[in-house]
Design a protein around this nucleic acid. Structure first.
Lengths: 225, 225
DNA sequence: CCTTTAATGTGATTTATGTCACATTAATTG
DNA sequence: CAATTAATGTGACATAAATCACATTAAAGG
């Protein structure tokens, strides 16, 4: 699919710093691809040759751990999908998989490098985003390792509502096993705790749709486990 | 203490990309400070006004978690101490503490920004380092959450030997509680497992000095728990 | 639309590791 | 160099959550 980056409605914050000329130099060097649920966008262990940018849909970043997969984070639209894995190592250190229909823009890595080189506003924004990403990953790791399952699940539900769907009613297209891999818990434990939350009136579920009913109680579960 | 960055023998890989002029513009805008064991270099929750760079000594990066402190990583010389916390947020999102005598160079943040802006080689190197840092933190988090204590401790010991001290005999000036916070285990468990490793001949300890005796067994403990 | 496969729910059991409670040893510091 | 204070060692016990083993329900595919 041919791009015209200047008119792209999904530009990243960084790309908004680019001039018309720069955007036009970008157009012939990127390619938008559609993925459907379950499709692999980036595969751990393969060479990374492009910068991937998520235009629409949701994707998960995951790593093969020693015993099971760990879902590192859920990425929402208008975010780069693999900057660390693209610039940190020649070989992808993690995988990215679509969790619903996604449009991903693959940008030629040397073109991206040129932009970093020539436009300091652009590279500054990328640096800021990388820094924020790292802080977030520290924070997530602390939560993952210190809280118990009720707390971790409450966290994830609030994070979905606040930062991804911007609504207390949302439909997550991921399995309980995925959620388990995201919070470091077994699929069975996730099932049990979700049922507990429903029983106690913190949330309701119908199919894959989750409704947050009692934010206060959820926030308290997030704190006190 | 007055600096002359051009002659500084501890320049970072990124700073090695700077011109003589740029280094001389840096000199009046940075300040080297000595810290002793236990001193706080960066404090979580305070404003970050400088980029901190570790010239000598070892430091630990740690975050106040909901229940206890988590040691995120040990930083060795010639590394920036708080790039993510400096550029990702106005307020420091983590603390850094000296674990032995340290020399830290504080660089004025706007000077650092100017260099990022004017020298693409420099900013590129910073980007690469940030990316590597994030990949490493992902990997560490997976290990921390999936392995059991024997495996995690074996990892840390090998990491110390390979990446920090570059020797199988080294003296770590950190307490078992710190090690516990680094691998997410209680101080008691660390003590027990270390004793196990000594008993089984994987390592020996005298005082704070640790000697790795059996790398193979340690590596296998790292894998199989 | 039926059949197969994937996802979820739920009880019983096991287990790694945390917590508590002291004993002991090493470091500080007045 | 006593005298505190900090760090470590070790047993007994408690417990969150994994694992196992099925039952049930939902989704996918021919």
């Amino acid at each position: 699919m041919k791009n015209n980056c200047f008119f792209c409605e999904y530009k990243s914050v960084a790309a908004q710093k680019l001039s018309k000329d720069e955007l036009e130099s970008l157009s012939p060097n990127c390619l938008t691809v559609k993925f459907k649920r379950g499709d692999s966008i980036i595969r751990q262990g393969t060479y990374s040759t492009n910068v991937a940018y998520l235009k629409t849909g949701l994707a998960k970043i995951h790593i093969d751990g020693p015993y099971h997969i760990q879902v590192v984070r859920i990425v929402k639209p208008k975010n780069y999908l693999g900057l660390p894995t693209t610039f940190g190592d020649k070989i992808n250190q993690y995988s990215v998989t679509a969790i619903e229909e996604c449009e991903v823009c693959f940008i030629d890595i040397s073109t991206f490098r040129k932009l970093l080189h020539s436009n300091p506003e652009f590279s500054n924004q990328i640096i800021v985003e990388l820094c924020k990403g790292e802080l977030e990953s520290y924070q997530k790791c602390v939560n993952r390792t210190q809280k118990q399952i009720r707390g971790k699940l409450a966290d994830v539900l609030l994070d979905f509502a606040d930062n991804i769907f911007h609504s207390d009613v949302f439909t997550v297209n991921i399995t309980q096993e995925d959620i388990g891999n995201l919070v470091d818990a077994s699929r069975e434990s996730v099932s049990r705790v979700m049922a507990e939350f429903v029983k106690d009136g913190l949330i309701s579920m119908s199919g894959k749709q989750i409704t947050i009913l009692d934010r206060k109680m959820l926030a308290s579960a997030s704190k006190n486990g």
